[in-house]
Design a protein around this nucleic acid. Structure first.
Lengths: 208, 208, 208, 208
DNA sequence: AACTAATCGAGACGGTACGTCAGGTCTTCTG
DNA sequence: CAGAAGACCTGACGTACCGTCTCGATTAGTT
């Protein structure tokens, strides 16, 4: 297996990224944006507040990001690039248990407003900005989705999942119900619920 | 004493609803709100614009609705109360075919910006306003969800679905993936996709 | 010719002046503008500062005045309409003494920054805005100029001034040197200077 | 004794003026400043615009001039040092005719926005900046004023003007009314007006 | 001829103010 | 007397410049 550990640079380019750009300001802005989204909620998240919290001129934000959503997006990107490396979903050999574990962790995250509120804010922006949505799909959703697919693929190869399963559909079958319930608040987001979702998705609705 | 003919159905009061209230203004406001959400998108949907389009003073909106989201909510409520009665989901006896039919219809609706944009707008407001979310869950989601449950229940009683199935989880398993994909734009919303979702949900992920 | 004593109302119209307009805000704005011009000087006179000092929204200023200069102009107008009535220049019968008296009073005013600074500010705006200049000429300069002409006319009728004198030119001959020296600071503005100006203007440069 | 041929005239140093300084940039800046003042008017005259027009970095301006007014001042200084040498006011022996000639030329200059607008801009800066005013008085006004005094002195010596005349007051009596009327736009600036001013100033206001 | 230090064009930075838009409250006038 | 009209204060928007501060790249004048 080739070494190729880590990828030399392309980690965070995305934007023109002039050599003159202040990395300190960039991090301060992204951190402030994430924090404020968590503290004030989406409604009161303003560029002015981000600039003030970050100790930065407004123009410095407008110079590098086209919209408030793009800032938030980069904030998530920055966080997601911290402790990743090549993380993997747990694999104990029991796909049902593993999926339950992962979803339970997600439920816990969503219970923390400091994480959930920024996620709601970003989700909202995505819902209304197709361009941002494309970026999101490519840079945030896809990497995570690949991890999910990978775990399912292993179960599939172990003969635990149907051989002809469309893994993208399978991922949606597991995570879609949870995310939809969480975002639209159509019901409580509990581990009992996610356990039921996993069981139901694996077994299918039909009478056996 | 007059028979009080007007409102036998407390379906839509919710708010004080003074006798003096102008029904014409109310309808104009709700119609304007829905149209503007469809035309301008969520970003440019302002109370001022709604008031202007409806030919109404701003105060008339603030008098009767607490937030922009509440207006939008009532606009959906008004629409949903038009041709409802006690509609039902189709029942040909083939639960898989029926679910595919229903989801295909949804896909079509979501392709129409005049419907999809207001829905995105409302979804956004719900995502950020728990109170509105509760209203939504009770007054808009629940009635529709009951129709869905009813259809699934019939299939269950016909022995097509598992006897111990949690129907709420089942509803989420069918509609959750679609709504999540649509709202977050993590992939194209097509009938091919919804067909696959229905098949997968019914059959389950496991190898048979 | 009927008495027509002065025009019944036009005290402060000038602008559309809706009936809804808040007189309190108007006065607060004009007062704040005048004071700030005196305290901070022209450079730091900003609409934002005026609004803040007046306890008023910026929009309330922009709603009623097109430019900063127009605010300043109205501030002067307000002041000039306070204690005027039909003031007159002093008339002791000695035109030279009277003119010296008047100019000495002007010198004193110009020595007070609270008066001189706003005047410099207004002068600047006038110098760069022909429209404002026209307003100034008509509503602020002309009334005062008429007082000056009136005094000179009396002296003329008393045979103290040349019968064929162009009174407008005469006014400029008296007040022009002073104002020019003051505004462009080409020399100290003292009563000795104004006395000399009056003497020279009356006597003429020529050898007798 | 060394030749020291370089600077016999300390006419224009004023500033440190390092040997390293780029003369090309200096001229480009002053020219751009003057042109922009004429084209855009005072309001839109910004250091950024000057730098852009001159093809120069902003710092190059800030390095050598303390304020925008100082740049404008030097621009005038540069122009005034071109075709001067030891110019003189015309002397035909007829002081009245000569003064009228000079003022008519001034009227013409003031009619050209490319000259008048920068002058208004500079005048404005002077009005609000005592330091700049002192420079102006010394380096731009005084040399011209000396020419004026010189012409009047000759007339005085020829017995045409009063022997005890204060020449500075006399200069103000001739030029003050014109400049004041021009800057504050209290009336049209015409040759008819300047002729009248000259006649009135020479003859005096008094009845003969 | 190589060094070196000031100056140059460029432009990012933290800020202030601009003039506009909308939010939500309050007041006035009209049907 | 409810409702349209809209003025009001507030606060955020996105832009223009401010004056300061790096960045390499010239470009003198030493060495």
């Amino acid at each position: 297996m080739p070494p190729a550990k880590k990828s030399p640079a392309p980690a965070a380019p995305a934007r023109p990224n002039s050599a003159r750009r202040s990395e300190a300001s960039r991090r301060a802005i992204l951190t402030a944006a994430f924090e404020l989204a968590g503290e004030l909620g989406y409604a009161k998240l303003s560029i002015e507040a981000i600039a003030a919290r970050a100790g930065v001129g407004k123009q410095t934000i407008y110079r590098w990001w086209p919209t408030k959503g793009a800032v938030l997006f980069d904030a998530f990107l920055m966080l997601s690039e911290g402790p990743d490396g090549d993380a993997e979903l747990p694999d104990t050999g029991d796909i049902e248990a593993d999926l339950k574990t992962v979803l339970r962790a997600t439920v816990e995250e969503l219970a923390d407003p400091r994480i959930a509120e920024p996620m709601r804010a970003l989700s909202t922006e995505i819902a209304h900005d197709p361009q941002l949505a494309a970026l999101y799909a490519e840079r945030l959703d896809e990497p995570v989705r690949e991890l999910k697919r990978a775990r399912l693929r292993k179960a599939q190869q172990a003969g635990q999942l149907a051989a002809d399963l469309d893994l993208d559909v399978a991922v949606d079958a597991i995570w879609g119900p949870l995310l939809n319930r969480w975002l639209l608040r159509t019901g409580p987001v509990t581990t009992a619920y996610t356990d039921a979702v996993v069981e139901t998705a694996l077994r299918g609705l039909r009478a056996s």
